[in-house]
Design a protein around this nucleic acid. Sequence first.
DNA 1: TATTTTATTGACTATATGTCGATAAAGCAA
DNA 2: TTGCTTTATCGACATATAGTCAATAAAATA
Lengths: 184, 184
Amino acid sequence: MSTHKKEDPRAIRSKKMLKNAVYSLLAENPDISQLTVQKIANRAELNRATFYLHYQDINDLLRQISHEMFDDLSIKIDPLLKTQSSNEQEQLITFLDYIYEYRKFFVIFFEHKGFKDNLFKLLKNTVAMRRNARSIESTKNTVSTDIMAASLLGIIMWWIKDGIQFSSEYIAGQITSMYKKRPM
Amino acid sequence: MSTHKKEDPRAIRSKKMLKNAVYSLLAENPDISQLTVQKIANRAELNRATFYLHYQDINDLLRQISHEMFDDLSIKIDPLLKTQSSNEQEQLITFLDYIYEYRKFFVIFFEHKGFKDNLFKLLKNTVAMRRNARSIESTKNTVSTDIMAASLLGIIMWWIKDGIQFSSEYIAGQITSMYKKRPM
DNA sequence: TATTTTATTGACTATATGTCGATAAAGCAA
DNA sequence: TTGCTTTATCGACATATAGTCAATAAAATA
């Protein structure tokens, strides 16, 4: 993906420095509500007005950062989900391992508007894809993909925030024993 | 519950007016981040300094409001959960109906730190109580109360925010078919 | 190289925060 | 009730943040 017109190198540099400043500040204090344009500009060693030249406000910048990091994550996770691996349980563990790796980032950005929605969509698509792959059986007595994605999101949020002592294997096991149709 | 020393009537009146101001402002604009001490004091027709006399900051006031409203909710829901009703499905629907009734309030305060934790605890306790009531069977092959509470919270959050077109009966059905042990 | 375009900056205005001494209302003891 | 003490309220001050704009500096272009 390339932008239509080549961007001014000053602008590219400034935007990169502003984003790095946000990472740096959030690493010191994960509370997004403590961020100010002032602090970001100071850390980036740029004038505060430069910030407003590139971003509407802090939420705008956070939205873009969150989008970029989510895209990175999707790219890593997607091929994993598309492979027709024999072992679904192992796929789930690998997926959770990715989330665990980025847990600090996840906890922070769960507070931010768009991120939760994006993860919800990813989870919903994944559930839907798996169901298709598994054949179109069981349209009855099955919970909707919305409900499954919502509860998966709830579990992930709890795990990352308050249950981080549990391994991804344990969480995967819990999820599987919760959702998998038991043999009748 | 009564406070140890009787409070100055001026203080009681001011706190009530500040809280009412918050309700009034959030009804107009549910975005908590748009709240300012200025706006709250203006709406309450009090001096801004009076706010700081009673609350540390906006989060402090929101925490207290959230606590009070959550206590009200718990009081309403608790007896419902304690009755040994024959029909668990109907109990679940009534529980969800309560949440639906307060959905505006729920959506707003899900953004606020303590509220989600409180609801999580309530859900976890409820799940645990039900399991005890149902006898101590099935300690194996059962998901932990943490996982169940977390996924219930995820479903409720999704329902209230993005799936409000679904009835509480539908959600209850989905939850039941998801968690209930299928006959083996 | 000269000219146009665009990014950066310092300065200005408006608004929010937090605090403090002065004032007014409530509590209390005689 | 009266006089004294305590505490709530308020106006005012200092500081911090947000958002904008004209002047300047750097990059693109012809």
